[in-house]
Design a protein around this nucleic acid. Structure first.
Lengths: 371, 371
DNA sequence: CTGAAAGCGCTTACAG
DNA sequence: CTGAAAGCGCTTACAG
């Protein structure tokens, strides 16, 4: 380390930390009123933007005083008075997951635009932690965005009991729980159609377990898309890999590769998220498969880092940031008394980001590709 | 999409959204007091944990009332009364950068442990946005953690003027600004020593521009480490790549590869962050270099995804989460009137995560490696 | 040990 | 248009 830390909190000149100097009292409404020679309520009215409630002459005095003191309203006091906190809570499984990080970034942007502020709470997608964090947040916010794809656990129930307006993000709820989800069905369709267009007829789907709401929807959409293309699906092609399992991708690959030659898929749609996709890719290569010559792979969820893989991985990119923003916008609309739809599926379409992990089905496929 | 959204905000049974139902009024201190038949101040004292200020008999009544009503104090009112908000603000360049996401995760953990809550504001590492977000946060928080490695801009000055206690995270400030940084010097040393131990004598260093505080420290530490090993450093081996520049890695590699054979580095220490490291790796391979056979590479900042690169990239891993946690802990200590050091360098050491991007210096190196 | 009062900084009917 | 008052939900001296 370059510089010595001084444990006495003073710098080399012996002055106290700037941050430790007595904090100047912030000017209040009353300070402004006194300086302008009016009643505090006048200042309040002027500042709340209620037009023409105040005489121009008075207003000038007030504004001058505000400027002179650099007055900024205390939002906490304002919140207490209004019975609103001007704050939203956001529960998030992981700040280090790119998908959720993107949702949060979008949420933050939307909140900022509405002059709301966001309180975050990490949950590790753990039910107990979610419940605890809900309790912590509930009393400081006007509404809660609960991001998670998990359907099990008691967090949703807790949320309902809390009496705080909320919206779910990235999962569906019961009949009365508003939610925002991405169009995972369309994303799945894009992946399957792309693979089919390359001539693949034996396509496997690696999905997360059914407690993950997105997994349920992707699996169903996969089956639908295959059926729509007239492609049969062997039960063995539907494999489950838990996103938390560091061996999930490998186990899935082994199961698939262990199938009799004629039944072995030529393409994999790995719908269980980024980590599992990477595991799958690595396991395939470790087991001697060339990608995409021997087997094509499409993953779910994107990352700029994917460009640097070899081969770079083709993936479905969801509009995560837009989802986060939408959740906040809807919650805010709801707080203002507007009706909001129970389920909102983003109209921003998922995109297939083409890289190099997919190619034409190898020629030893029994039947020719459909034109 | 599978389900129809009903724009009227009612479910298929015509009931209003759960979230739209009239919000039950939360019980207040007065409700508890009334139920327990005591004065609100008694309840307040009991709940603030001031021991033995209340008769056991009374306490029992109060606690029963609290339990019966499920009372939870309104933290905003509490904050207003205490003159504290029980809230910290965190400015962060990007929620989608793994390094900052990790710091934030650590910060959140520490805040949670102290019953504080965190307000986040994204800045894009843009000075104007930072200033704006500071203004937004300043009046709702007891203190601010400003995370960023940038030294330019007016955000720090703004922060100082605001009069809100603060701490910088991942950069040093002026003589009076408390900060928390990682031991980038040690991280750099690890990288250089590792490379030297493999027999490399011509080691290049790709750094971010000098407005990035960590870049300054890494470059200096690189020079020191090289000198300590008795290794000369050609000026041409010190190359600058801006983390924001999508071509930065490639340009650096071209410059280095363009050097006369005898002067060409056999190893690269890419200290400009994850993205630039990946660009560098890709550019090297695109230009026909085998890694590590022709050239060894060490990157800065880690990610689980790096395991899946080919070759997997050896990197320096900084204790980002611990840094974030420490910043919060120190700020909190400071808020309680404790003196805190002006500069805190994490004693958690950086780790060198060995993967496969480094190997012995190729045999055509002029001089043998030092034992 | 307990109660009554004042106050944190703001907002909003309600009178002038 | 402006002022005085009451109140948001809590805390904390100050008296009993």
């Amino acid at each position: 380390m370059a510089t010595n830390a001084r444990a006495d909190g003073r710098d080399s000149q012996g002055r106290p930390n700037r941050a430790a100097r007595p904090r100047p009292r912030r000017p209040t409404l009353r300070d402004v009123a006194r300086l302008a020679g009016v009643d505090p309520s006048v200042v309040s009215r002027e500042l709340s933007g209620q037009e023409s409630r105040v005489r121009p002459e008075t207003r000038a005095r007030v504004l001058a005083a505000v400027a002179q003191l650099g007055y900024q309203p205390n939002q906490v006091a304002r919140g207490l008075s209004l019975g609103r906190m001007l704050t939203l809570g956001v529960l998030i499984p992981s700040l280090t997951s790119p998908a959720y990080a993107a949702m949060i970034a979008g949420a933050e942007r939307a909140a900022c635009a509405a002059d709301y502020v966001l309180l975050f709470a990490g949950t590790g997608d753990d039910d107990e932690t979610m419940c605890r964090q809900l309790g912590r947040l509930a009393h400081r916010v006007d509404g809660i965005v609960m991001a998670s794809a998990r359907r099990d656990g008691r967090a949703l129930q807790r949320l309902q009991q809390l009496g705080v307006p909320f919206i779910l993000l990235n999962r569906r709820g019961g009949e009365a729980d508003p939610c925002v989800i991405g169009d995972d069905e369309e994303g799945t369709r894009l992946a399957v159609q792309h693979l089919a267009a390359l001539g693949h007829r034996r396509i496997a789907c690696i999905c997360a377990p059914s407690v993950i709401d997105t997994a349920v929807r992707r699996r169903a959409a996969f089956l639908e898309a295959m059926a729509a293309l007239g492609l049969a699906v062997e039960p063995a092609w539907l494999v489950v890999a838990s996103p938390g399992d560091s061996q999930g991708g490998e186990a899935a690959v082994r199961a698939l590769l262990g199938l009799p030659e004629a039944q072995r898929p030529t393409a994999l749609f790995c719908a269980a998220g980024l980590t599992t996709s990477l595991q799958t890719l690595a396991a395939l290569q470790r087991l001697g498969q060339r990608i995409p010559a021997d087997v094509s792979v499409v993953g779910f969820d994107d990352s700029p880092l994917l460009d640097y893989l070899s081969p770079p991985l083709t993936t479905v990119r969801m509009p995560h940031a837009a989802m986060g923003a939408r959740a906040v916008e809807l919650l805010l609309a709801h707080l203002q008394g507007q009706q909001i739809p129970r389920e909102t599926c983003l109209e921003e379409r998922p995109k297939l980001v083409l890289r190099n992990s997919t190619g034409p089905a190898s020629s030893d496929v029994c039947s020719p590709a459909p034109s």
